[in-house]
């Protein structure tokens, strides 16, 4: 078969090619470039090979940050996913004023910028003027996010739950709304329990949106930066110093460009790896039900 060559087609992909190049490929390659150099100043760079990677991988503080990060992200998923599903199940269906109101209320936290969320909670949790802090103090709970590590960690977690559970709930709600009412009728006629309806109809039908919710919430929480930065700047001690915090300290605070670049690449690969693992697990669970 004769294939007609038409090179003009290349012109059509040039815009996309340029956008991707400038927004993703070139910056990433710059980072790769930095990661293999020792940089003293403009024009004073030396090739060091994989040395930075070796330093980064052996960095104890990075290991601590990574463990803190993993625990944090898992906690976020463990709370936000079930909570989001529960909220979605409890939401009113159909087209009514009640539905619209619920949707608007749920969407509100999603509209608030990250640093504002941080500031809100920073003030909210203060012992002297914050509603939450003052209430805790009044009922005798010792809560102080500025010098208690656990309190600070929990505050960042609650902040994220407050900010992002809505997203999970809205996604699940969309999934639930796509189930034809006949499914529920059929289950009713079958005499299926509420649990059976959830387990065998709602959950499988929500699988698609749940994959998206888990991936989004995992990646986002794994890259959390603004909230702890605004709240305590990563403290007290290192208790809320997550990977991003540590990376920023290294790159902007100490101006350790080479090391920070190597760190970035490792960071990127970790996120990629975890996302891949989650994706595989969730899609496999679905297939497993075939057997």
């Amino acid at each position: 078969m004769d294939k007609v060559q038409d090179n003009r087609a290349w012109f059509l992909i040039i815009p996309v090619f340029l956008i991707v190049a400038f927004s993703a490929v070139i910056p990433l390659m710059t980072v790769v470039n930095y990661s293999v150099q020792e940089i003293f100043g403009p024009g004073q760079t030396f090739f060091v090979g994989t040395e930075w990677f070796e330093v980064v991988l052996a960095d104890e503080r990075l290991h601590d940050a990574l463990i803190r990060q993993i625990i944090y992200s898992l906690a976020v998923l463990a709370i936000e996913i079930p909570l989001g599903i529960l909220i979605a199940l409890g939401m009113p269906g159909g087209r009514s004023a009640k539905t619209s109101l619920t949707l608007v209320l749920l969407a509100l936290p999603l509209l608030i910028p990250f640093n504002v969320v941080g500031t809100i909670w920073q003030i909210f949790g203060r012992g002297d003027i914050g509603l939450l802090g003052a209430t805790f103090r009044a009922i005798g709970i010792d809560y102080n996010y500025t010098n208690n590590s656990l309190d600070a960690w929990l505050t960042v977690l609650v902040m994220d739950v407050w900010h992002w559970t809505s997203l999970v709930a809205l996604l699940c709600y969309a999934g639930l709304q796509s189930i034809p009412p006949a499914f529920y009728q059929a289950a009713k006629i079958d005499g299926a329990s509420k649990w059976a309806v959830f387990r065998y109809i709602q959950l499988p039908k929500m699988r698609g949106v749940l994959i998206i919710a888990v991936l989004l919430r995992f990646m986002d929480s794994f890259m959390i930066y603004t909230e702890p930065f605004v709240l305590t700047g990563g403290g007290p001690g290192n208790s809320t110093t997550f990977l991003s915090q540590y990376l920023t300290q290294m790159a902007v605070g100490q101006f350790d460009i080479g090391k920070a670049a190597a760190f970035s690449i490792v960071y990127f690969l970790i996120v990629l790896l975890f996302s891949f693992i989650f994706y595989t697990i969730i899609t496999r669970t679905g297939e497993g039900e075939k057997k």
Partner: peptide
């Protein structure tokens, strides 16, 4: 209530439990 009635129903849409095999679907009642 329909739970206490002796009925079965088939719909326009194809209603089966999506995550169960055909065998399990038929076995479910």
């Amino acid at each position: 209530s329909v739970r206490h009635r002796d009925v079965a129903m088939v719909y326009q849409q194809f209603i089966n439990y999506p995550a169960m095999t055909v065998y399990e679907n038929i076995a479910s009642p």
